[in-house]
Design a protein around this nucleic acid. Structure first.
Lengths: 202, 202
DNA sequence: CCTACCGATCGGTAGG
DNA sequence: CCTACCGATCGGTAGG
């Protein structure tokens, strides 16, 4: 199987359980049981439960840099904004457990300092990407001048989070089928288009 | 001091610690230490740690019904929407720990079922209040016809949550002073006005 | 990579 | 409302 593969299996099992039951609510025994390996393997490969958590974030965020350049080379600022949004909607669905976990970590004011620093780095890059698109739009006279980018990003990611996490409320079923997945995705994208539309000059 | 007062002290101490460190991350010993009372008091008054958590939600949400009628009797639909938003922004700031906790609870897909049911009741009422305002606005030809209320509510509450919880990112300081509190509140209200503006017919 | 085990801490309660 | 304590489980590791 190889050491690298085994580590990634542990990462993904832990990611899922942490997302569902929380970091404190998941014991290393829970993780070992779910992945059918020995408890001691976690210390063996990662050093500690805390370092396992950090490793999940390093693993998930290390590839984001490449994704940045690949996705939003669109010239038109509005198209670029929509493209960035659509990209993150896809990301939320594809790596749902991870983003649930990221959302949890940020919901604890006094905890997970190391992991939050990793997230903040990504957040800065996201803000910058949005900033460039907005500035381009402003220079072309398409977008309002008074747009506050960090607040706009908060609205966009807050909306994605709430809609993806509220799915159980919208459809009254936490384990929604593929059919509903697509419906939610459409709903988020439509909603974000409305948010972006609010940024356009009348 | 009276039994009722003591119970409320325990509720508020627990609320704060749960919000900061999570339900699983807070032991009944932590709560007892912070409130300078005996560990056994929690079982004595509430039965268990889990019932203490539920009691916090019952305590915080039992008064919401009265608040509904008192706040948004405004006739004009747009004014009413703004009034509801402003009310919840105030609520988030006044009962910050509670809403941080509520946000946490909802961030765990497989946990806190009892507490989530209490939240869902409130959520339904909130959706209904927004629904009435939106329908009134549509009948008067002010608001777009295609507004999806649950999604709109998700955008509004997602935005409030993210901005209030992202304060540390915006100001790079988790323990913001009163001056900054006011700044954040202004920012949220401005942002929500932009969201509502997106609902108006062009 | 597993067995066997450590000290610490957990939620909870019997008895007063 | 406190003391003293229970059994269970926690994260982690020595030794192989």
């Amino acid at each position: 199987m190889g050491e690298r593969n085994k580590k990634i299996i542990i990462l993904k099992v832990a990611e899922k359980l942490f997302a569902n039951n929380g970091y404190e609510g998941t014991s290393i025994r829970d993780i070992a049981r779910e992945g059918s390996f020995n408890t001691a393997l976690i210390s063996y490969y990662f050093g500690s439960k805390e370092k396992l958590l950090a490793s999940i974030f390093v693993y998930r965020l290390e590839r984001q840099d490449q994704l940045f350049t690949a996705y939003w080379d669109k010239k038109d600022p509005l198209e670029r904004l929509s493209s960035i949004n659509a990209f993150y909607v896809d990301e939320f669905f594809e790596k749902r457990s991870f983003f649930v976990l990221m959302n949890q970590v940020q919901a604890f004011p006094g905890k997970y300092v190391t992991v939050k620093e990793i997230c903040n780095e990504l957040q800065s890059k996201i803000n910058q990407v949005f900033s460039e698109a907005v500035e381009a739009g402003q220079q072309q006279g398409i977008l309002r001048e008074e747009i506050n980018v960090p607040l706009m990003v908060a609205v966009i990611f807050g909306s994605i989070s709430k809609i993806v996490f509220f799915r159980c409320l919208i459809f009254n079923n936490p384990d929604t089928s593929i059919k509903y997945e697509a419906d939610i995705k459409d709903a988020v994208n439509t909603t974000l288009r409305a948010v972006v539309a609010g940024l356009i000059l009348p």
